[in-house]
Simulated assay, not measured.
Amino acid sequence: MAAEESQPSESSFIDSVASITQHLPVSSDRVLGSRNTNKPPSQTAQSLFYALKGEIIDTNGPFFIEKEGIPPEIGYLVTRSLSENNEVEGKGVRISYNPINQTLCIKMPSHSHDVILAWGSNELVRAGMTGFFTTPELDEVSLFSACRFDNFPIPWQSVYKEPDMVFVYGPRDLPTVLVEVGYSQSWPRLLQDKDVWFQAAPTVNVVVLVKWNRCTNSRVAGYLELFRRGVPTPTHIDIFPTPTPPAPQTLTFRRDDFYPPGTTLPAGRSPNDLWQWDINNLRMRTTRAMSADGTVPA
C-alpha cells in the first residue's frame, strides 16, 4: 500500500502532479500509448480533475461515477490527484482506474455496499477464536478496507485500485485476497476489475466479486463469485433471493489463499486447510444494512 503523501493545492494542480506522469509505465500500444513526458499534464487532465471533484463534493449519499475512454497518462494522474485532495477524501469515496479498459470509477458506498467489511471482520475474529489463525499468524495476515494500491509492477504502474475489502500478508505492499462490490457497477466491469488484479498483482490468489441488483419495489437481489488464480470455474453463491429451502451455506477459502505464492506457511499448517465463511451471517448483516438504505432483500 502506498504511503500517505502531502495534499496538492488546487492552485498548483498542474505543477504539483507533473512528476507523476514521468513515472508512468510504457508497456504496449494497446494499454499505454507513447507520450512525451517532458510536457506538462494536459488541460484535459486538469478539466477532468475539477469536474469530478465538483461532482463528488456536491453529491450526498451513495453514488457511482464511471468515465470511459480515459487514457492512462490522464486516468492515473487524475485518480491519484483526487485521492490526495482533502475535500474529496472527506467524502469517503473509493476511486479506481483500469488502464486495460481505460475506465475511471468513483463510488460512495451505501450501507448495503459496505456490509462486506463487517462480515469479513466478523469471520476473522471467529478464525482467531477457533484457532484457524493463531495470534502470531493474525499479526501477519491483515484485513483492510478502501486502502490505496498504486504500486503495481511494470507494466502496470498506471493501475489505481481501492478495493472494498482486502487481505495483505506481512510487509508486502500488494494483497493476497480481496473483494470488489458492485451496485451500480455492471457485472462485466467487475469481471474486468478481477482480470486487472490477476494480471497486475502477482500476489493476488483470490478475487471475490459481490454484485447487488436493484429490483422493483425497493427490492435488492445479489450474488457473489469467488475466482481463484489458475482455476477456470468460479464458485457462485446466490445471496438474495435466499435459496429455498434455507440451508447452511459457506464461502470456502484455503489457508494458502492468504499467503503470497512461494511463501512458507507456519509450521504444522497445511495449504489446504479450509476457512468457511457463513453466508447466512452475510444475509443477516445485509438485511439490517438494507433497512438503513430503504431497501429489502428480494
Rank of each mutant, 00 (worst) to 15 (best):
F144A: 10
W212P: 01
P175C: 09
N151D: 14
K211Q: 10
Y169P: 03
T252L: 12
F132L: 08
P241H: 00
Q192E: 15
R229I: 02
P243D: 14
Y169R: 06
T250L: 04
P202T: 05
Q249N: 08
F144N: 13
Y160C: 11
F198W: 08
V210S: 00
I239Q: 00
P188S: 03
P155D: 11
P136F: 02
F258A: 03
G230C: 05
D173H: 08
P232S: 08
F133L: 15
P188L: 05
E137A: 01
D139M: 12
V220T: 03
T244Y: 11
F149Q: 04
W197Q: 08
P241E: 00
G170T: 03
V168G: 06
A146E: 13
V166E: 10
D257F: 09
D238K: 12
C147Y: 06
S184V: 02
E225D: 11
G182M: 07
L178N: 07
T135L: 13
L191P: 00
V204I: 11
Q249T: 10
D150I: 06
N217K: 05
W197M: 05
Q199N: 11
V166T: 15
T235D: 15
K211R: 08
T242R: 13
R219T: 11
Y183L: 13
R255N: 06
L191M: 12
L251I: 00
A201S: 15
P245H: 02
G222T: 01
V220M: 04
R229G: 06
F198Q: 08
F227N: 12
E225R: 14
R254E: 14
P136K: 02
P163D: 09
V159H: 02
S218H: 11
F227V: 02
Q199L: 14
P153D: 12
T252D: 15
T252E: 15
R229M: 05
N151Q: 12
G222H: 01
R228V: 12
P245A: 06
T135H: 09
T252R: 11
D195A: 13
N205R: 15
L224Y: 04
M165G: 13
P232C: 02
V196D: 09
P234M: 03
V159E: 09
D173C: 10
P232R: 02
V231A: 11
N217M: 02
K161R: 15
V206K: 05
F253W: 02
R254S: 14
C147W: 05
T235Y: 01
G131T: 01
T203G: 06
F227Y: 15
T203Y: 09
L251M: 08
A146Q: 12
A247L: 12
T216P: 01
P171C: 10
Q157W: 07
E180K: 11
V210I: 14
L143G: 09
L224W: 05
P245C: 05
P171A: 14
V220L: 01
K211Y: 00
T250Q: 10
I237W: 06
G170E: 09
A200V: 08
L190G: 02
D257C: 13
P260A: 10
L138R: 12
R148M: 12
R172W: 10
F258K: 01
G222N: 00
P241Q: 00
L209C: 12
V159T: 09
S218F: 10
